[in-house]
Design a protein around this nucleic acid. Sequence first.
RNA 1: GGCCCGUUCGUCUAGGGGUUAGGACGCAGGAUUUUCAUUCCUGUAACACGGGUUCGAUUCCCGUACGGGCUACCA
Length: 589
Amino acid sequence: MRSKINLMNNIRLRFAPSPTGALHIGGLRTALYNYLLAKKHNGTFILRIEDTDQLRYVPGAEEYIIESLKWSGLIPDEGPGFGGAYGPYRQSERKELYQKYTQQLLDKGEAYLAFDTPEELDAERLKDPTFKYDARVRQRLKNSLALPAEEVQRRVSAGEPYVVRLKVRPNEQAVVQDQIRGEVTFDTNELDDKVLMKAGGLPTYHLANIVDDHLMEITHVIRGEEWLSSTAHHVLLYRAFGWEDSMPQFAHLPLILKPAPESFLHKENTPVLAQRLAQEFHKKHSDVPSAHFEKTEKFALQVLQDKANIAVSLKEKDKDEPEKAQLKAFLKDSLFGKLSKRDGDRLGFPVFPLSWQGEREDDSFVGFREYGFLPEATINFLALLGWSPGTDQEIFSLEELIQAFSIEKIGKSGARFDIDKARWFNQQYILKADTADLMDKVRPIIEANGHQPGDAFLHSFIDLMRERAVTLLEFWENGYYFFEPPRSYDEKNARKRWDAGRSGLFRQFVEGLSILPDFSASPIKAFVEGFLQDNELKFGEVFPLLRIGLAGTMQGPAVFEMMELLGKQETVGRLKKAFQLFDEWVAQG
RNA sequence: GGCCCGUUCGUCUAGGGGUUAGGACGCAGGAUUUUCAUUCCUGUAACACGGGUUCGAUUCCCGUACGGGCUACCA
């Protein structure tokens, strides 16, 4: 047994994702908390790939997971490609180990063989929806506990497929000491005989995770709350192996939930969302006649429009027809509960750290990185989603998070995902980032749009735009006109402010600009101010027109700085062109 | 349905037997500014409900409601 003093020494934590697709943002948070606790105590952070489900295995997912961790700065100390003395770190490469330990359990009488086919079990569940493979029913089923030994032998030698199940004893208690929730007790009468070894010879998560955590000397298991229920079985497994004394400490994290419907439902997007949900519903339930689409959409819209009562209107009623009940259930799943990959493109925000290209288009997603989020900001945002330092500090570097982190400060209740908060964090990081750093990250975006800015230009551009960009992408979106002519002009405001009578005066103004010997902000300023004074013009009569002429919009950095960066030739050219356009507009009336 | 977990402003949360229940995001207003943004100031808004325990409960206990998770030869 570990002594108390020793408890936080040499701690070993693992992040154990399954390579079934892109790593969800909730998974990244789990990785982060594992990493933080490990690093806080100079422990070891391990990556283990749980690829025991060959059916759900997705090529590229492991690489994706590793790239995501690297992007986030959570570098494993051990793991596939990272070395370590406890490998291999891919469960598919540890098959013999699981077989060996399964045999151990079999020998001890803690597990048994079961020959029931999936079809037979489905039939049982059809008969009785509450069917559970447990002590009460196993005597009447096809397993090594119920069948005569000779028959078991015969079936095995005949190569008949079987699974190995944990023999759960009735009338016992499985107690989980959870670091976040305290003591959670389960009655083994409620627990089924979980499959440990699948017919294909691969272990289930339950077995693999216990064997590996034991062999890898994992001291703390931090994982999502969806695992809390099955932890009862895990405790039983440790008991069956006789490893209870070295069982890791468990901490089950509250889940990340979908954003509150009130927060994303606006007049403009409600019909769009209703339509989208209707489409998804019909796609999922092909048995529903497509002629009902309009009806579906109408109901969805009706539900969404009454923002405050969505949950109430989706409540099942006995008199609901099956199709209505189905629709309600679908909408409820789509609008409430844990954050899912669908929510991202449905609502227009990232749910994955990095973009993911699935086989089909509807299995492809844009990541935080590609949306223009900085990894530091993403991590900071995630850290505070479910954990709090107990102080008013909001901005944390990874190093600061390590110092401040503790399991006791993790919250108990689910946290709703809030993209506005994520954006705010990103803005904070952009505001204080090194210009050189931003240059490296913004340059590819500019280049992707067909421009090759020089260092000095890019440097000034970033200084001018950083207060006006919340994401990296917005440097381009809000400041593209530094690289190419405005695509459109704020016509309404131009017309309002353009006085045809002053057309000549403005031409004179451009003329003056074009002969300035030093085209930097302060001489430009001096010139413009002088011009205004000489011609008795007010700021408000000139500046907005300059802005629109230069950038197309009334928003943007200081005009003189803008002119300096654009350069004389570009400035003069754009203004000439714009003023001519304004003249035409006004002439047209 | 069964089992398990949870519930403080719209959201993320601090707090905790006696507090003007604190901060942040958002939203609204104001100041600064050639616009926008940044920055600063102000405002908005919360202890789910019902019973206990107690001199006193938002805080502790029990119910109810609501939310969430699990209920596979998936993880």
